[in-house]
Design a protein around this nucleic acid. Structure first.
Lengths: 201, 201
DNA sequence: GCTGTACATTAATCTAGATTAAGAAATAGT
DNA sequence: ACTATTTCTTAATCTAGATTAATGTACAGC
């Protein structure tokens, strides 16, 4: 089995592992497998809109997704990127008041499952792999905590440097303006920061 | 049993519930009980410093704690407040690179337990109350997620208003400068914001 | 009761980053 | 290959909030 990254809530992938490892699956597990959609999406597809009543968990087999909010002025704020082997879910997954949008940044292959089904079925199936689950959630908390500290104390340059070292695999694949959005600054400010840094070398 | 708030990672309190509910405790549980410290702390006491090797989980029975980081310029950034019935833990609890300080804002009564012990003992004892545990962590994630959105998109006034409605019980009890620190602005800016708002009424 | 220290407010600058706008470069669609 | 659209960069302003500093206020210790 390929080593799994736990940068983010890596629930669905271990769920899938359990389903797949089962060499002699019960009818219950068999029925579940049918409910996991396996789909290709073109760049630009919208998987979920804030406020949608649906709530799914997406596992990125190939490609790149993002989640984001739109504030009261209509501005997008990117919440996270999800490249290969990452999990992404909408706000409902976290009982959060802010509703997240999820869309596709590169042609992608996605496995997805209904959130409710996932919660109801995953827990009984994985009681003995709870440590992994907890570890994944703790990791998620760490990422968010770090992000809060960054937003509270770091300048635009510092945030950008931090992003580059933390997510090198994403830096090259998404437009500058989206990185800027993730960092909480404007694309112009990011451009400025980069050219100033280049000049000072 | 008093209703428990789940605003934050409420692990220790359910842990304590389990220990206390046990009418005929096993020797193992009995031994554990001895390891939970029950202490009073004076305002100003420091429970943990960033970088400390100890790692505990604190349950606030009475009083008020806070956790914060100190950035490379020596500035404090308040990460969270923990009033009565809340749980607070240092960075090590989340495997976070940023080390948190924890100290006492009001004379407090605290129950605390070593993090490692907690993790090793809590999980086997509470396999069947996992849903509660997961709910607590999800709630924590929601709080952090909301905080990120706030820091990315809201102005000083908006953040202050949001804080007041979300944490009314804290607003009256901590100095302005600490609320400012939590909001990611300076005390002067908060003062300005408040007087401008008062004038415009 | 004083005195000192921490905290809050106000006002005068300063600055990082936002906004606006316009041109250059890259990408996609036909 | 050519056009259209999106993205990136640069530069000129503008502004929210930082910084600095001075004054006012409350409480703690003596």
């Amino acid at each position: 089995m390929k080593e799994k990254r736990l940068q983010h809530l890596n629930l669905l992938s271990s769920f899938l592992d359990i389903l797949n490892q089962d060499s002699n699956p019960s009818p219950q597990v068999e029925a579940l497998k049918q409910k996991i959609s396996n789909k290709s999406f073109k760049k630009g597809s919208v998987l979920q809109r804030g406020g949608d009543m649906v709530s799914r968990i997406y596992y990125v087999k190939k490609g790149l997704l993002r989640s984001y909010t739109i504030d009261h002025k209509g501005k997008e704020h990117i919440f996270m990127f999800a490249p290969e082997d990452w999990i992404i879910a909408d706000g409902a997954d976290f009982a959060s008041p802010c509703q997240l949008f999820i869309d596709v940044l590169e042609d992608s292959e996605i496995e997805m499952v209904d959130k409710k089904l996932f919660e109801e079925v995953y827990i009984p199936l994985t009681l003995n792999s709870d440590k992994q689950r907890t570890a994944a959630m703790i990791k998620r908390i760490a990422v968010l905590q770090e992000r809060v500290i960054m937003l509270m104390s770091a300048s635009a340059i510092e945030r950008y440097e931090h992003f580059k070292t933390t997510y090198p695999q994403i830096t090259q694949r998404v437009p500058q303006r989206m990185i800027a959005s993730y960092l909480g600054i404007t694309p112009e400010a990011l451009s400025k920061v980069k050219s100033e840094k280049a000049r000072s070398k």
